[in-house]
């Protein structure tokens, strides 16, 4: 393997893991705090992508500037879904919320197909094709390239990851969310209103999914069904990293990206098989994940 190929692969791992961290972060928080495997997550990512597509196509807003719009809209939608639907079955076993979110996902995707049509959509900006050349070897006619759009997405992703970490670890709301995840009754005895905490947790998760959707919309073409794949990715990433914390999600996303990129070099058709083989191995060998914590800290 040439040095350029190794360098380019390392860059690709980093670029991929940034977006995947954002895609998995909200999924991990809802799972860890509320004990819900949230299958609506991918649909929220998909809606974020359409927010960006619509704002860019019809209002000419730069896709990066649509990220806050996606986040706010999805935050609101997430709050409403938790408050008015899932909240009623919070005391039910995990299978109930699992099936409920599965049903919600199908409803949202079907509505999206109805309103947005099933056509493949893509966003092409003035800077879509250009990239930063980190290193070039004219003799071999090859180089290490970082597409500007992916570089921007990485920076946004890292920033949002850091902000989410600070929100969870340093703020009053974050502390209340973590308390509730650890002991719901004890949190109530400190005066936390659980239904509000859950609604905000779900809203934060959906807001992050919205941001992930916006970032993904800039780099790949999509149609209403594409989010489901990201729910699966998020699942693998959370199992890989462990259900512990924001940094655990980043570790999981890094491991997932590494496997995907390495398998892609060798046999592009087998990337998903490799990623999920890793999931199976991880569940058998170390079910608590790389960072290994049982709950949100």
């Amino acid at each position: 393997m040439s040095g350029i190929l190794i360098g380019q692969s390392a860059i690709n791992v980093l670029l991929l893991s940034g977006v995947l961290t954002i895609a998995a972060l909200g999924f991990s928080i809802v799972w860890g705090v509320m004990n819900i495997i949230n299958l609506v997550h991918g649909a929220a990512i998909m809606l974020g992508a359409y927010v960006t597509f619509i704002a860019f196509t019809f209002a000419g807003i730069d896709p990066f500037l649509t990220i806050p719009i996606s986040m706010v809209l999805l935050f609101g939608l997430g709050y409403l879904i938790q408050r008015n639907i899932i909240n009623y079955v919070m005391r039910a076993p995990m299978l109930t919320t699992f099936l409920l979110t599965f049903g919600l996902e199908i409803i949202i995707i079907n509505l999206a197909q109805f309103f947005f049509k099933s056509d493949l959509r893509a966003i092409t900006t003035g800077y879509s094709g250009s990239s930063l050349t980190l290193y070039a070897d004219p003799a071999a006619n090859s180089s290490i390239e970082v597409p500007y759009i992916k570089l921007g997405a990485l920076i946004v992703a890292l920033l949002l990851t850091l902000l989410t970490h600070l929100l969870m670890s340093r703020t009053r709301l974050g502390r209340a969310i973590r308390s509730t995840g650890m002991d719901k009754d004890a949190a109530q005895l400190t005066g936390a209103r659980i239904s509000t905490i859950y609604a905000l947790t779900f809203a934060i998760s959906a807001g992050l999914a919205g941001a992930a959707g916006s970032l993904i919309a800039m780099t790949q073409s999509f149609q209403p069904g594409f989010g489901g794949t990201y729910t699966l990715y998020a699942f693998v990433i959370v199992v890989l990293g462990g259900l512990g914390s924001v940094p655990a999600v980043f570790l999981g996303a890094l491991a997932f990206s590494l496997i995907t990129v390495l398998t892609g070099l060798w046999q592009p058709g087998l990337t998903q098989a490799a990623a999920f083989a890793l999931l199976v191995i991880m569940l058998v060998v170390r079910p608590s994940g790389i960072a290994g914590k049982a709950f949100y800290q």
Binding site: D183, A187, K293
Partner: peptide, 26 residues
């Protein structure tokens, strides 16, 4: 009206300081 529940019910993964501050949540 506050209670210290039986079995302590601390937030095990939170620090002592975070537990105490969570007590003042309201």
């Amino acid at each position: 009206l506050t209670q210290v529940p039986q079995g302590r019910r601390l937030f095990a993964g939170l620090t002592v300081k975070e537990n105490l501050l969570q007590g003042a949540y309201s």
